[in-house]
């Protein structure tokens, strides 16, 4: 009953309930299956044969099997790890100091114009230290 080309449903394991086709018979108890299941060796007692058979060559490649399944109306999708998208930086709470530093340049240009009149003309560049003050007094 289990011959090359026989459609089966897998009854055990994580591929249970999926349709597969017997690609090759390796042993009296093992067969190579492919289809909606992973392409692997499988125990014949874990397969439930369906009344349908398909024409494939012994040891057919995955491409041939997927072509045959397309005729049956089943699309075989190969699960491959998708390249991860780079995580976008989350909006984080901004402190008041950081907000001032990050202020747009247009505001900075306006500020000196407005504040120029308010600021004193000359600011002492270096503060007199206590020692210097004492020395100048003496």
């Amino acid at each position: 009953m289990i011959t090359v080309g026989r459609l089966c449903i897998k009854t055990a394991g994580r591929d249970a309930g999926k349709k597969c086709v017997v690609v090759d018979q390796l042993d009296k108890s093992y067969a190579l299956i492919d289809g909606e299941t992973r392409r692997r060796k499988c125990n014949i007692s874990h397969l439930e044969p369906l009344p349908q058979t398909v024409e494939i060559s012994q040891g057919a490649s995955h491409d041939e099997v997927s072509r045959v399944f397309k005729l049956l109306g089943i699309e075989l999708v190969v699960k491959r790890a998708q390249p991860k998208e780079e995580a976008k930086p989350r909006p984080r709470p901004v402190r008041a100091q950081q907000r001032k530093a990050m202020a747009p340049k247009s505001q900075e240009k306006q500020k000196p114009k407005a504040a120029a009149s308010k600021l004193p003309a000359a600011k002492p560049a270096v503060k007199e230290t206590k020692l210097e003050k004492a020395a100048s007094r003496q």
Partner: peptide
């Protein structure tokens, strides 16, 4: 696992 296998076989034999 045994009950799951029974369910899968019954489902396969239905269709």
């Amino acid at each position: 696992s045994a009950c799951m296998r029974r369910t899968m076989i019954a489902r396969a034999r239905q269709t």
